[in-house]
Design a protein around this nucleic acid. Structure first.
Length: 567
RNA sequence: GCCCCGAUAGUUCAAUGGAUAGAACACCAGCCUUCUAAGCUGGCUAUGUAGGUUCGAUUCCUACUCGGGGUACCA
Protein backbone atom coordinates (compact mmCIF):
# COMPACT_ATOMS: atom_id res chain seq x y z
CA UNK A 1 0.00 0.00 0.00
CA UNK A 2 1.42 3.34 -1.00
CA UNK A 3 2.37 5.72 1.76
CA UNK A 4 0.22 8.51 0.41
CA UNK A 5 -2.85 6.32 0.53
CA UNK A 6 -1.95 4.94 3.90
CA UNK A 7 -1.57 8.40 5.41
CA UNK A 8 -5.02 9.42 4.23
CA UNK A 9 -6.65 6.33 5.68
CA UNK A 10 -4.76 6.78 8.91
CA UNK A 11 -5.97 10.31 9.22
CA UNK A 12 -9.56 9.14 8.96
CA UNK A 13 -9.03 6.64 11.72
CA UNK A 14 -7.26 9.19 13.89
CA UNK A 15 -10.16 11.58 13.43
CA UNK A 16 -12.46 8.80 14.57
CA UNK A 17 -10.42 8.40 17.73
CA UNK A 18 -8.11 5.47 16.95
CA UNK A 19 -4.74 6.21 18.39
CA UNK A 20 -2.29 3.43 17.86
CA UNK A 21 -1.61 0.17 16.08
CA UNK A 22 -3.15 1.16 12.81
CA UNK A 23 -2.61 -1.78 10.52
CA UNK A 24 -4.43 -2.34 7.25
CA UNK A 25 -5.20 -5.64 5.64
CA UNK A 26 -6.79 -6.67 2.41
CA UNK A 27 -10.39 -7.89 2.40
CA UNK A 28 -10.79 -11.41 1.02
CA UNK A 29 -13.16 -10.36 -1.78
CA UNK A 30 -13.13 -7.54 -4.26
CA UNK A 31 -16.69 -6.49 -3.43
CA UNK A 32 -15.75 -6.07 0.22
CA UNK A 33 -13.59 -3.06 -0.43
CA UNK A 34 -9.95 -2.23 -0.99
CA UNK A 35 -8.48 -2.04 2.49
CA UNK A 36 -9.66 -3.12 5.89
CA UNK A 37 -9.07 -2.16 9.48
CA UNK A 38 -9.67 -4.84 12.11
CA UNK A 39 -11.41 -3.74 15.30
CA UNK A 40 -10.38 -6.56 17.66
CA UNK A 41 -7.95 -4.56 19.76
CA UNK A 42 -10.13 -1.50 19.86
CA UNK A 43 -13.06 -3.59 21.03
CA UNK A 44 -10.98 -5.25 23.69
CA UNK A 45 -9.88 -1.90 25.03
CA UNK A 46 -13.44 -0.65 25.20
CA UNK A 47 -14.83 -3.96 26.37
CA UNK A 48 -17.24 -4.19 23.46
CA UNK A 49 -18.09 -6.58 20.68
CA UNK A 50 -15.72 -6.10 17.69
CA UNK A 51 -18.56 -6.18 15.19
CA UNK A 52 -20.39 -3.44 17.07
CA UNK A 53 -17.30 -1.30 17.27
CA UNK A 54 -16.75 -1.73 13.53
CA UNK A 55 -20.32 -0.64 12.84
CA UNK A 56 -19.98 2.46 15.00
CA UNK A 57 -16.62 3.34 13.47
CA UNK A 58 -17.95 2.99 9.96
CA UNK A 59 -20.87 5.31 10.80
CA UNK A 60 -18.54 7.87 12.31
CA UNK A 61 -16.23 7.81 9.30
CA UNK A 62 -18.96 8.05 6.67
CA UNK A 63 -18.85 11.83 6.95
CA UNK A 64 -15.16 12.16 6.25
CA UNK A 65 -14.07 14.72 3.69
CA UNK A 66 -11.13 12.80 2.35
CA UNK A 67 -11.15 12.61 -1.39
CA UNK A 68 -9.73 9.17 -1.91
CA UNK A 69 -12.29 7.38 0.23
CA UNK A 70 -15.47 6.73 -1.65
CA UNK A 71 -17.20 4.72 1.00
CA UNK A 72 -16.70 3.08 4.38
CA UNK A 73 -18.56 -0.05 5.39
CA UNK A 74 -18.46 -2.44 8.30
CA UNK A 75 -18.21 -6.15 7.55
CA UNK A 76 -18.37 -8.08 10.78
CA UNK A 77 -15.46 -6.96 12.96
CA UNK A 78 -13.81 -5.04 10.11
CA UNK A 79 -14.15 -1.50 8.83
CA UNK A 80 -13.59 -1.60 5.09
CA UNK A 81 -12.58 1.27 2.87
CA UNK A 82 -13.61 1.67 -0.73
CA UNK A 83 -11.24 3.89 -2.63
CA UNK A 84 -11.82 6.16 -5.56
CA UNK A 85 -10.11 4.59 -8.55
CA UNK A 86 -9.12 7.88 -10.13
CA UNK A 87 -7.38 9.06 -6.95
CA UNK A 88 -5.63 5.71 -6.63
CA UNK A 89 -4.47 6.04 -10.23
CA UNK A 90 -3.05 9.52 -9.66
CA UNK A 91 -1.07 8.47 -6.60
CA UNK A 92 0.13 5.22 -8.15
CA UNK A 93 1.33 6.75 -11.41
CA UNK A 94 3.14 9.42 -9.46
CA UNK A 95 4.93 6.75 -7.44
CA UNK A 96 5.96 4.39 -10.23
CA UNK A 97 9.15 5.84 -11.66
CA UNK A 98 12.52 4.26 -12.34
CA UNK A 99 13.37 4.35 -8.63
CA UNK A 100 10.12 2.80 -7.53
CA UNK A 101 10.74 -0.13 -5.20
CA UNK A 102 14.28 0.97 -4.32
CA UNK A 103 15.30 1.71 -0.74
CA UNK A 104 18.18 3.19 1.16
CA UNK A 105 17.77 0.97 4.21
CA UNK A 106 21.25 -0.39 3.61
CA UNK A 107 23.01 2.85 2.81
CA UNK A 108 26.58 2.78 4.11
CA UNK A 109 26.35 -0.89 5.03
CA UNK A 110 28.30 -3.71 3.50
CA UNK A 111 27.04 -7.25 3.03
CA UNK A 112 28.89 -10.32 1.86
CA UNK A 113 26.76 -12.92 0.17
CA UNK A 114 28.46 -16.28 -0.15
CA UNK A 115 26.78 -18.60 -2.59
CA UNK A 116 27.14 -21.38 -5.17
CA UNK A 117 30.18 -22.94 -3.44
CA UNK A 118 30.69 -26.00 -5.63
CA UNK A 119 33.67 -28.23 -5.04
CA UNK A 120 36.35 -28.47 -7.71
CA UNK A 121 36.88 -32.07 -8.89
CA UNK A 122 33.20 -32.76 -8.35
CA UNK A 123 30.02 -32.08 -10.26
CA UNK A 124 28.03 -28.89 -10.07
CA UNK A 125 24.95 -30.53 -8.71
CA UNK A 126 21.36 -29.46 -8.31
CA UNK A 127 21.89 -28.03 -4.85
CA UNK A 128 24.62 -25.75 -6.18
CA UNK A 129 22.34 -24.62 -8.96
CA UNK A 130 19.57 -23.76 -6.55
CA UNK A 131 21.95 -21.90 -4.26
CA UNK A 132 23.46 -20.07 -7.19
CA UNK A 133 20.02 -18.86 -8.21
CA UNK A 134 18.91 -18.03 -4.67
CA UNK A 135 22.17 -16.28 -3.86
CA UNK A 136 22.09 -14.18 -6.99
CA UNK A 137 18.59 -13.02 -6.13
CA UNK A 138 19.51 -12.27 -2.51
CA UNK A 139 22.41 -10.16 -3.79
CA UNK A 140 20.09 -8.17 -6.05
CA UNK A 141 17.49 -7.70 -3.35
CA UNK A 142 20.11 -6.29 -0.99
CA UNK A 143 21.61 -4.07 -3.66
CA UNK A 144 18.15 -2.77 -4.41
CA UNK A 145 17.83 -1.79 -0.76
CA UNK A 146 20.99 0.30 -0.91
CA UNK A 147 23.51 -2.15 0.53
CA UNK A 148 27.03 -2.40 -0.80
CA UNK A 149 27.08 -6.09 -1.68
CA UNK A 150 30.07 -8.31 -2.42
CA UNK A 151 29.47 -11.65 -4.08
CA UNK A 152 31.77 -14.33 -2.77
CA UNK A 153 32.14 -18.00 -3.50
CA UNK A 154 34.00 -20.50 -1.34
CA UNK A 155 35.23 -23.64 -3.00
CA UNK A 156 36.70 -26.80 -1.56
CA UNK A 157 39.84 -27.55 -3.53
CA UNK A 158 41.42 -29.57 -0.73
CA UNK A 159 40.04 -32.32 1.44
CA UNK A 160 38.94 -35.92 1.19
CA UNK A 161 36.76 -35.45 -1.90
CA UNK A 162 39.80 -34.11 -3.76
CA UNK A 163 41.85 -37.07 -2.56
CA UNK A 164 39.21 -39.49 -3.85
CA UNK A 165 39.15 -37.73 -7.21
CA UNK A 166 42.95 -37.77 -7.41
CA UNK A 167 43.05 -41.48 -6.63
CA UNK A 168 40.54 -42.01 -9.42
CA UNK A 169 42.49 -39.85 -11.87
CA UNK A 170 45.79 -41.59 -11.17
CA UNK A 171 44.09 -44.94 -11.52
CA UNK A 172 42.83 -43.80 -14.93
CA UNK A 173 45.89 -41.74 -15.75
CA UNK A 174 46.10 -42.78 -19.42
CA UNK A 175 42.57 -41.63 -20.05
CA UNK A 176 43.34 -38.43 -18.19
CA UNK A 177 46.16 -37.68 -20.61
CA UNK A 178 43.92 -38.17 -23.63
CA UNK A 179 41.33 -35.87 -22.09
CA UNK A 180 43.64 -32.89 -22.43
CA UNK A 181 42.72 -32.70 -26.12
CA UNK A 182 38.97 -32.97 -25.54
CA UNK A 183 36.16 -30.47 -25.01
CA UNK A 184 35.68 -29.01 -21.57
CA UNK A 185 32.41 -30.87 -21.16
CA UNK A 186 34.06 -34.22 -21.73
CA UNK A 187 36.95 -33.41 -19.43
CA UNK A 188 34.58 -32.54 -16.63
CA UNK A 189 32.59 -35.68 -17.25
CA UNK A 190 35.80 -37.60 -16.85
CA UNK A 191 36.49 -35.88 -13.52
CA UNK A 192 33.06 -36.92 -12.33
CA UNK A 193 33.80 -40.52 -13.27
CA UNK A 194 37.19 -40.40 -11.62
CA UNK A 195 35.66 -39.10 -8.42
CA UNK A 196 32.95 -41.78 -8.40
CA UNK A 197 35.64 -44.38 -9.07
CA UNK A 198 37.75 -43.17 -6.15
CA UNK A 199 34.79 -42.80 -3.83
CA UNK A 200 33.60 -46.32 -4.51
CA UNK A 201 37.02 -47.90 -3.93
CA UNK A 202 37.39 -45.82 -0.79
CA UNK A 203 34.25 -47.52 0.52
CA UNK A 204 34.89 -51.08 -0.54
CA UNK A 205 38.64 -51.60 -0.44
CA UNK A 206 40.80 -50.97 2.61
CA UNK A 207 44.06 -50.69 0.66
CA UNK A 208 42.58 -48.15 -1.72
CA UNK A 209 41.22 -46.27 1.23
CA UNK A 210 44.70 -45.89 2.66
CA UNK A 211 45.95 -44.71 -0.71
CA UNK A 212 43.22 -42.09 -0.85
CA UNK A 213 44.19 -40.89 2.58
CA UNK A 214 47.78 -40.65 1.39
CA UNK A 215 46.65 -38.44 -1.49
CA UNK A 216 44.89 -36.24 1.02
CA UNK A 217 48.17 -35.81 2.89
CA UNK A 218 49.98 -35.02 -0.33
CA UNK A 219 47.54 -32.25 -1.19
CA UNK A 220 47.99 -30.63 2.19
CA UNK A 221 51.74 -31.01 1.95
CA UNK A 222 51.92 -29.48 -1.56
CA UNK A 223 53.54 -32.67 -2.85
CA UNK A 224 55.34 -32.05 -6.18
CA UNK A 225 54.39 -35.49 -7.51
CA UNK A 226 50.72 -34.62 -7.81
CA UNK A 227 51.04 -30.91 -8.45
CA UNK A 228 50.60 -30.97 -12.23
CA UNK A 229 47.63 -33.29 -12.27
CA UNK A 230 46.05 -31.46 -9.36
CA UNK A 231 46.41 -28.04 -10.96
CA UNK A 232 45.21 -29.20 -14.36
CA UNK A 233 42.12 -30.94 -13.06
CA UNK A 234 41.31 -28.11 -10.68
CA UNK A 235 41.40 -25.63 -13.52
CA UNK A 236 39.06 -27.77 -15.64
CA UNK A 237 36.55 -27.65 -12.82
CA UNK A 238 36.85 -23.93 -12.38
CA UNK A 239 36.43 -23.30 -16.11
CA UNK A 240 33.34 -25.47 -16.06
CA UNK A 241 31.87 -23.61 -13.09
CA UNK A 242 32.61 -20.27 -14.74
CA UNK A 243 30.66 -21.38 -17.78
CA UNK A 244 27.62 -22.15 -15.64
CA UNK A 245 27.85 -18.85 -13.75
CA UNK A 246 27.98 -16.93 -17.02
CA UNK A 247 25.08 -18.86 -18.44
CA UNK A 248 22.96 -18.15 -15.39
CA UNK A 249 23.91 -14.48 -15.35
CA UNK A 250 25.95 -14.59 -12.16
CA UNK A 251 29.42 -13.41 -11.35
CA UNK A 252 31.64 -13.15 -8.29
CA UNK A 253 33.78 -10.43 -6.79
CA UNK A 254 36.00 -12.88 -4.98
CA UNK A 255 36.55 -16.61 -5.24
CA UNK A 256 37.84 -18.10 -2.00
CA UNK A 257 39.44 -21.51 -1.84
CA UNK A 258 40.03 -23.89 1.01
CA UNK A 259 43.62 -24.16 -0.17
CA UNK A 260 44.24 -20.55 0.78
CA UNK A 261 42.80 -20.82 4.29
CA UNK A 262 43.76 -24.21 5.66
CA UNK A 263 47.14 -23.24 7.07
CA UNK A 264 45.71 -20.21 8.77
CA UNK A 265 42.91 -22.41 10.07
CA UNK A 266 45.32 -24.63 11.94
CA UNK A 267 47.07 -21.59 13.34
CA UNK A 268 43.84 -20.08 14.64
CA UNK A 269 42.76 -23.28 16.32
CA UNK A 270 46.14 -23.72 17.99
CA UNK A 271 46.04 -20.16 19.26
CA UNK A 272 42.51 -20.77 20.50
CA UNK A 273 43.63 -23.96 22.17
CA UNK A 274 46.09 -21.99 24.27
CA UNK A 275 43.23 -19.82 25.46
CA UNK A 276 41.15 -22.87 26.28
CA UNK A 277 38.62 -22.31 23.53
CA UNK A 278 39.56 -25.54 21.76
CA UNK A 279 40.82 -28.65 23.46
CA UNK A 280 42.59 -31.92 22.77
CA UNK A 281 40.41 -35.00 22.66
CA UNK A 282 41.28 -38.50 21.48
CA UNK A 283 44.22 -37.19 19.51
CA UNK A 284 42.23 -34.49 17.76
CA UNK A 285 41.49 -30.88 18.60
CA UNK A 286 37.81 -30.17 19.11
CA UNK A 287 35.54 -27.27 19.85
CA UNK A 288 33.30 -28.33 22.73
CA UNK A 289 30.02 -27.19 21.22
CA UNK A 290 28.17 -29.27 23.79
CA UNK A 291 29.10 -26.65 26.38
CA UNK A 292 27.06 -24.16 24.37
CA UNK A 293 24.03 -26.40 23.93
CA UNK A 294 25.32 -27.54 20.55
CA UNK A 295 27.49 -30.51 19.63
CA UNK A 296 31.25 -31.12 19.73
CA UNK A 297 33.13 -30.94 16.47
CA UNK A 298 36.62 -31.85 15.37
CA UNK A 299 38.68 -28.88 14.15
CA UNK A 300 42.07 -30.48 13.70
CA UNK A 301 42.20 -34.18 13.07
CA UNK A 302 44.66 -36.53 14.66
CA UNK A 303 47.00 -36.17 11.68
CA UNK A 304 47.23 -32.46 12.29
CA UNK A 305 45.13 -31.46 9.29
CA UNK A 306 42.33 -28.95 9.60
CA UNK A 307 38.76 -30.03 9.01
CA UNK A 308 36.19 -27.97 7.13
CA UNK A 309 35.38 -26.36 10.47
CA UNK A 310 38.87 -24.99 11.06
CA UNK A 311 39.07 -23.65 7.54
CA UNK A 312 35.82 -21.79 8.09
CA UNK A 313 37.45 -19.83 10.91
CA UNK A 314 40.26 -18.66 8.67
CA UNK A 315 37.81 -17.89 5.89
CA UNK A 316 35.75 -15.74 8.24
CA UNK A 317 38.84 -13.88 9.29
CA UNK A 318 39.66 -13.17 5.65
CA UNK A 319 36.10 -12.03 5.01
CA UNK A 320 36.34 -9.48 7.77
CA UNK A 321 39.87 -8.39 6.95
CA UNK A 322 39.22 -7.87 3.26
CA UNK A 323 35.74 -6.39 3.36
CA UNK A 324 34.82 -5.23 6.88
CA UNK A 325 31.24 -6.38 6.33
CA UNK A 326 28.30 -5.53 8.56
CA UNK A 327 26.72 -8.81 7.64
CA UNK A 328 27.75 -12.06 6.00
CA UNK A 329 25.09 -14.26 4.47
CA UNK A 330 26.04 -17.85 3.69
CA UNK A 331 23.55 -19.25 1.21
CA UNK A 332 24.11 -22.92 1.89
CA UNK A 333 21.97 -26.05 2.00
CA UNK A 334 20.01 -26.99 5.07
CA UNK A 335 22.15 -30.04 5.80
CA UNK A 336 24.73 -27.65 7.20
CA UNK A 337 22.40 -25.94 9.66
CA UNK A 338 23.84 -27.50 12.79
CA UNK A 339 27.36 -27.17 11.48
CA UNK A 340 27.01 -23.42 11.03
CA UNK A 341 25.63 -22.96 14.52
CA UNK A 342 28.77 -24.50 15.94
CA UNK A 343 31.04 -22.70 13.47
CA UNK A 344 29.62 -19.27 14.36
CA UNK A 345 29.85 -20.04 18.05
CA UNK A 346 33.49 -21.04 17.76
CA UNK A 347 34.23 -17.98 15.66
CA UNK A 348 32.64 -15.74 18.26
CA UNK A 349 35.03 -17.08 20.85
CA UNK A 350 38.09 -16.00 18.93
CA UNK A 351 36.62 -12.90 17.27
CA UNK A 352 34.00 -11.21 19.42
CA UNK A 353 33.38 -8.57 16.76
CA UNK A 354 31.72 -11.15 14.54
CA UNK A 355 28.83 -11.67 16.94
CA UNK A 356 25.51 -11.18 15.22
CA UNK A 357 27.05 -10.65 11.81
CA UNK A 358 27.21 -14.18 10.48
CA UNK A 359 24.03 -15.67 9.01
CA UNK A 360 23.30 -19.01 7.49
CA UNK A 361 20.56 -18.56 4.91
CA UNK A 362 19.23 -22.09 4.80
CA UNK A 363 18.64 -23.41 1.33
CA UNK A 364 16.06 -26.12 0.86
CA UNK A 365 16.86 -29.12 -1.32
CA UNK A 366 16.05 -29.33 -4.96
CA UNK A 367 14.43 -32.64 -5.67
CA UNK A 368 13.42 -34.00 -9.01
CA UNK A 369 10.07 -35.66 -9.04
CA UNK A 370 9.37 -39.32 -9.54
CA UNK A 371 11.55 -41.28 -11.94
CA UNK A 372 13.44 -38.14 -12.97
CA UNK A 373 15.31 -38.59 -9.74
CA UNK A 374 18.49 -40.51 -10.15
CA UNK A 375 20.69 -42.17 -7.64
CA UNK A 376 23.90 -40.48 -6.65
CA UNK A 377 25.28 -43.86 -5.59
CA UNK A 378 25.28 -45.15 -9.13
CA UNK A 379 27.11 -42.04 -10.21
CA UNK A 380 24.09 -41.19 -12.28
CA UNK A 381 23.58 -37.76 -10.78
CA UNK A 382 21.62 -35.18 -12.68
CA UNK A 383 23.99 -32.25 -12.61
CA UNK A 384 23.10 -28.59 -12.70
CA UNK A 385 24.14 -28.09 -16.30
CA UNK A 386 22.27 -31.21 -17.38
CA UNK A 387 19.13 -29.85 -15.81
CA UNK A 388 19.55 -26.52 -17.62
CA UNK A 389 19.96 -28.39 -20.89
CA UNK A 390 16.93 -30.59 -20.26
CA UNK A 391 14.74 -27.57 -19.63
CA UNK A 392 16.15 -25.88 -22.71
CA UNK A 393 15.15 -28.83 -24.88
CA UNK A 394 11.57 -28.53 -23.65
CA UNK A 395 11.46 -24.79 -24.21
CA UNK A 396 12.88 -25.17 -27.70
CA UNK A 397 10.11 -27.56 -28.64
CA UNK A 398 7.44 -25.12 -27.53
CA UNK A 399 9.19 -22.22 -29.22
CA UNK A 400 9.27 -24.02 -32.53
CA UNK A 401 5.65 -23.08 -33.16
CA UNK A 402 5.96 -19.42 -32.23
CA UNK A 403 5.99 -16.74 -34.91
CA UNK A 404 8.71 -14.34 -33.99
CA UNK A 405 9.74 -11.20 -35.82
CA UNK A 406 12.55 -11.97 -38.26
CA UNK A 407 15.13 -9.76 -36.63
CA UNK A 408 15.18 -11.54 -33.27
CA UNK A 409 17.74 -14.04 -32.14
CA UNK A 410 15.69 -17.10 -31.37
CA UNK A 411 18.37 -18.96 -29.48
CA UNK A 412 18.87 -15.98 -27.21
CA UNK A 413 15.17 -15.96 -26.42
CA UNK A 414 15.16 -19.68 -25.76
CA UNK A 415 18.06 -19.26 -23.32
CA UNK A 416 16.23 -16.46 -21.53
CA UNK A 417 12.97 -18.36 -21.30
CA UNK A 418 14.89 -21.39 -20.03
CA UNK A 419 16.54 -19.23 -17.41
CA UNK A 420 13.21 -17.77 -16.38
CA UNK A 421 11.60 -21.20 -16.11
CA UNK A 422 14.39 -22.55 -13.92
CA UNK A 423 14.87 -19.53 -11.74
CA UNK A 424 11.23 -18.85 -11.11
CA UNK A 425 10.58 -22.45 -10.14
CA UNK A 426 13.35 -22.31 -7.58
CA UNK A 427 12.53 -18.87 -6.25
CA UNK A 428 8.77 -18.93 -5.98
CA UNK A 429 8.87 -21.19 -2.94
CA UNK A 430 10.34 -20.16 0.39
CA UNK A 431 14.14 -20.28 0.06
CA UNK A 432 14.50 -22.65 3.02
CA UNK A 433 11.95 -25.15 1.85
CA UNK A 434 12.62 -28.07 -0.43
CA UNK A 435 11.58 -27.58 -4.01
CA UNK A 436 10.25 -30.46 -6.03
CA UNK A 437 11.21 -29.74 -9.57
CA UNK A 438 9.31 -31.19 -12.44
CA UNK A 439 10.99 -30.65 -15.76
CA UNK A 440 7.65 -30.92 -17.57
CA UNK A 441 5.69 -28.60 -15.30
CA UNK A 442 8.29 -25.91 -15.12
CA UNK A 443 7.81 -25.16 -18.78
CA UNK A 444 4.12 -25.91 -19.01
CA UNK A 445 2.16 -23.78 -21.44
CA UNK A 446 0.15 -22.30 -18.64
CA UNK A 447 0.38 -21.44 -15.04
CA UNK A 448 2.52 -20.16 -12.25
CA UNK A 449 5.78 -20.27 -14.14
CA UNK A 450 8.64 -18.17 -15.42
CA UNK A 451 7.46 -18.31 -19.04
CA UNK A 452 4.03 -17.00 -17.98
CA UNK A 453 5.71 -13.93 -16.51
CA UNK A 454 7.82 -13.32 -19.60
CA UNK A 455 4.77 -13.83 -21.77
CA UNK A 456 2.96 -11.14 -19.79
CA UNK A 457 5.75 -8.66 -20.41
CA UNK A 458 5.96 -9.66 -24.08
CA UNK A 459 2.26 -8.88 -24.50
CA UNK A 460 2.77 -5.42 -23.02
CA UNK A 461 5.79 -4.86 -25.24
CA UNK A 462 3.78 -5.82 -28.27
CA UNK A 463 1.11 -3.23 -27.54
CA UNK A 464 3.50 -0.44 -26.64
CA UNK A 465 5.61 -1.06 -29.70
CA UNK A 466 2.59 -0.51 -31.92
CA UNK A 467 1.78 2.93 -30.53
CA UNK A 468 5.25 4.43 -30.24
CA UNK A 469 5.73 7.48 -28.04
CA UNK A 470 2.58 9.12 -26.75
CA UNK A 471 2.09 11.64 -24.00
CA UNK A 472 -0.14 10.02 -21.42
CA UNK A 473 0.44 12.37 -18.52
CA UNK A 474 -2.43 13.37 -16.26
CA UNK A 475 -5.18 11.81 -18.25
CA UNK A 476 -7.89 9.98 -16.40
CA UNK A 477 -11.04 8.57 -17.97
CA UNK A 478 -14.50 8.78 -16.43
CA UNK A 479 -14.75 5.08 -15.84
CA UNK A 480 -12.03 2.88 -14.55
CA UNK A 481 -12.56 -0.85 -14.85
CA UNK A 482 -12.46 -3.19 -11.88
CA UNK A 483 -9.48 -5.02 -13.35
CA UNK A 484 -7.68 -1.72 -13.84
CA UNK A 485 -8.23 -0.69 -10.25
CA UNK A 486 -7.05 -4.08 -9.03
CA UNK A 487 -3.88 -3.67 -11.09
CA UNK A 488 -3.27 -0.19 -9.72
CA UNK A 489 -3.65 -1.37 -6.16
CA UNK A 490 -1.24 -4.23 -6.81
CA UNK A 491 1.35 -1.91 -8.28
CA UNK A 492 1.11 0.10 -5.09
CA UNK A 493 2.37 -2.87 -3.09
CA UNK A 494 5.74 -3.20 -4.80
CA UNK A 495 7.58 -0.69 -2.65
CA UNK A 496 6.65 -2.56 0.49
CA UNK A 497 7.37 -5.95 -1.06
CA UNK A 498 10.99 -5.16 -1.85
CA UNK A 499 11.50 -4.01 1.74
CA UNK A 500 9.92 -7.16 3.14
CA UNK A 501 12.11 -9.26 0.86
CA UNK A 502 15.32 -7.81 2.33
CA UNK A 503 14.05 -8.14 5.85
CA UNK A 504 13.14 -11.78 5.28
CA UNK A 505 16.14 -12.46 2.99
CA UNK A 506 13.64 -14.28 0.86
CA UNK A 507 13.25 -13.90 -2.92
CA UNK A 508 9.94 -15.78 -2.88
CA UNK A 509 8.26 -12.67 -1.52
CA UNK A 510 9.12 -10.89 -4.77
CA UNK A 511 8.37 -13.93 -6.94
CA UNK A 512 4.88 -14.39 -5.56
CA UNK A 513 4.15 -10.71 -5.89
CA UNK A 514 5.24 -10.56 -9.52
CA UNK A 515 2.99 -13.48 -10.32
CA UNK A 516 0.07 -11.70 -8.70
CA UNK A 517 0.67 -8.61 -10.84
CA UNK A 518 0.99 -10.74 -13.97
CA UNK A 519 -2.26 -12.52 -13.20
CA UNK A 520 -4.06 -9.22 -12.67
CA UNK A 521 -2.64 -7.91 -15.91
CA UNK A 522 -3.82 -10.96 -17.83
CA UNK A 523 -7.33 -10.47 -16.44
CA UNK A 524 -7.23 -6.84 -17.47
CA UNK A 525 -5.91 -7.78 -20.90
CA UNK A 526 -8.80 -10.15 -21.49
CA UNK A 527 -11.49 -7.62 -20.64
CA UNK A 528 -9.97 -4.25 -21.54
CA UNK A 529 -8.71 -3.66 -25.06
CA UNK A 530 -6.09 -0.94 -25.34
CA UNK A 531 -5.46 -0.25 -29.00
CA UNK A 532 -9.14 -0.53 -29.96
CA UNK A 533 -10.05 2.13 -27.41
CA UNK A 534 -9.94 5.83 -28.09
CA UNK A 535 -9.32 9.06 -26.26
CA UNK A 536 -8.66 9.20 -22.53
CA UNK A 537 -9.33 5.54 -21.91
CA UNK A 538 -6.72 4.47 -24.44
CA UNK A 539 -4.10 6.88 -23.10
CA UNK A 540 -4.85 5.89 -19.54
CA UNK A 541 -4.48 2.21 -20.37
CA UNK A 542 -1.21 2.83 -22.14
CA UNK A 543 0.10 4.52 -19.06
CA UNK A 544 -1.21 1.73 -16.87
CA UNK A 545 0.45 -1.06 -18.81
CA UNK A 546 3.68 0.93 -18.98
CA UNK A 547 3.64 1.07 -15.20
CA UNK A 548 2.92 -2.66 -15.03
CA UNK A 549 5.90 -3.32 -17.25
CA UNK A 550 8.16 -1.11 -15.15
CA UNK A 551 7.26 -2.97 -11.98
CA UNK A 552 7.43 -6.41 -13.57
CA UNK A 553 10.80 -5.85 -15.22
CA UNK A 554 12.15 -4.47 -11.96
CA UNK A 555 10.80 -7.35 -9.90
CA UNK A 556 12.00 -9.97 -12.33
CA UNK A 557 15.37 -8.26 -12.26
CA UNK A 558 15.52 -8.85 -8.51
CA UNK A 559 15.01 -12.53 -9.22
CA UNK A 560 17.81 -12.44 -11.77
CA UNK A 561 15.34 -12.99 -14.60
CA UNK A 562 15.72 -11.09 -17.86
CA UNK A 563 12.67 -10.35 -19.97
CA UNK A 564 12.27 -10.86 -23.71
CA UNK A 565 10.85 -8.49 -26.30
CA UNK A 566 8.71 -11.19 -27.85
CA UNK A 567 8.18 -14.89 -27.46
C1' G B 1 19.46 -43.30 20.84
C1' C B 2 19.87 -37.84 20.97
C1' C B 3 19.28 -32.99 18.34
C1' C B 4 17.17 -29.88 14.34
C1' C B 5 13.54 -29.10 10.37
C1' G B 6 9.08 -30.25 7.93
C1' A B 7 3.73 -32.30 7.20
C1' U B 8 -2.12 -27.70 3.73
C1' A B 9 -6.54 -30.24 -2.62
C1' G B 10 -4.37 -36.11 -6.76
C1' U B 11 0.45 -32.83 -7.57
C1' U B 12 3.55 -28.15 -6.81
C1' C B 13 3.28 -23.82 -3.78
C1' A B 14 0.50 -19.52 -0.53
C1' A B 15 -1.83 -17.73 3.99
C1' U B 16 1.88 -10.66 10.52
C1' G B 17 -3.33 -15.54 15.89
C1' G B 18 -8.56 -13.14 12.59
C1' A B 19 -13.44 -12.36 7.35
C1' U B 20 -16.01 -18.19 3.38
C1' A B 21 -7.88 -21.49 4.00
C1' G B 22 -5.73 -18.61 -1.59
C1' A B 23 -3.12 -19.87 -6.44
C1' A B 24 -1.06 -23.04 -10.27
C1' C B 25 -0.86 -28.04 -12.64
C1' A B 26 -4.18 -32.07 -13.67
C1' C B 27 -9.56 -32.94 -14.68
C1' C B 28 -14.59 -30.93 -16.54
C1' A B 29 -17.42 -26.85 -19.17
C1' G B 30 -17.06 -22.30 -21.96
C1' C B 31 -14.15 -18.07 -24.75
C1' C B 32 -10.06 -16.44 -30.84
C1' U B 33 -13.24 -12.03 -38.15
C1' U B 34 -10.58 -7.61 -32.11
C1' C B 35 -3.69 -5.58 -28.88
C1' U B 36 0.62 -12.73 -28.86
C1' A B 37 -4.88 -18.67 -26.72
C1' A B 38 2.50 -19.79 -23.49
C1' G B 39 -3.95 -16.45 -22.47
C1' C B 40 -9.05 -15.58 -20.13
C1' U B 41 -13.92 -17.12 -17.48
C1' G B 42 -16.45 -20.82 -14.53
C1' G B 43 -16.57 -25.83 -11.92
C1' C B 44 -14.33 -29.94 -8.70
C1' U B 45 -11.08 -31.25 -4.55
C1' A B 46 -7.12 -29.80 1.28
C1' U B 47 -4.96 -27.99 7.08
C1' G B 48 -1.17 -35.93 9.40
C1' U B 49 -3.48 -37.80 14.54
C1' A B 50 -4.93 -36.61 19.73
C1' G B 51 -5.09 -33.00 23.31
C1' G B 52 -4.17 -27.83 25.29
C1' U B 53 -3.93 -22.12 25.32
C1' U B 54 -7.46 -18.30 23.05
C1' C B 55 -13.44 -14.65 21.95
C1' G B 56 -10.87 -16.88 17.60
C1' A B 57 -5.46 -21.78 15.77
C1' U B 58 -2.94 -23.85 9.23
C1' U B 59 -0.25 -20.41 12.57
C1' C B 60 1.39 -20.90 19.59
C1' C B 61 2.24 -25.32 23.36
C1' U B 62 2.46 -30.92 24.47
C1' A B 63 2.40 -35.99 22.86
C1' C B 64 2.19 -39.29 18.80
C1' U B 65 2.72 -40.84 13.49
C1' C B 66 5.26 -40.20 9.01
C1' G B 67 9.26 -37.88 6.09
C1' G B 68 14.10 -35.21 5.63
C1' G B 69 18.77 -33.67 7.75
C1' G B 70 22.59 -33.80 11.49
C1' U B 71 25.10 -36.38 15.28
C1' A B 72 34.33 -36.65 16.07
C1' C B 73 38.52 -36.85 12.95
C1' C B 74 33.91 -35.79 5.07
C1' A B 75 32.45 -31.09 2.96
Amino acid sequence: MLNKIKKQLESILTQAGVEENIVFTKPPKLEMGDFAFACFELAKKEGKNPAEVAKEMAEKMKENDIEIVEDVKAFGPYVNFFLDAKEVAKITFEAVDENYGKHDIGKGKKVLVEFACPNPFKAFHLGHLKNLISGESVVRIFENAGYDVKRVNYQGDVGMHVAKALWGIFDLIKEFETMKEKELKERVEFLGRAYAHGASYFEKDEESKQEVIAYNDKVYEHDKGIEDVYNTARQWSLDYFAEIYARMGSSFDRLYFESEVFEKGVELVKKGQEKGIFRESEGAVIFPGSEYDLHDRVYINSKGFPTYDAKELALAEMHFKEHSPDKIIHVVGKEQTEYFKVAFKALEQIHKETIGKEHHLIGGFLQLKGDQKMSSRSGNIVTGDQLIDAVKVNISQIMEESDLPEDVNKNEIIEKVTNAALKYTMLRADVSKDVAFDIEESVSVSGNSGPYLLYTVARINSILEKVGNVDTLNIYPENIDETEKALLLSLGEYHKITAVAVEAMNPSVVAQYIFDVAQKFQSFYASCPVLQEEGDTKLFRLRLITAVRTVMVSGLGLLGIETVEAM
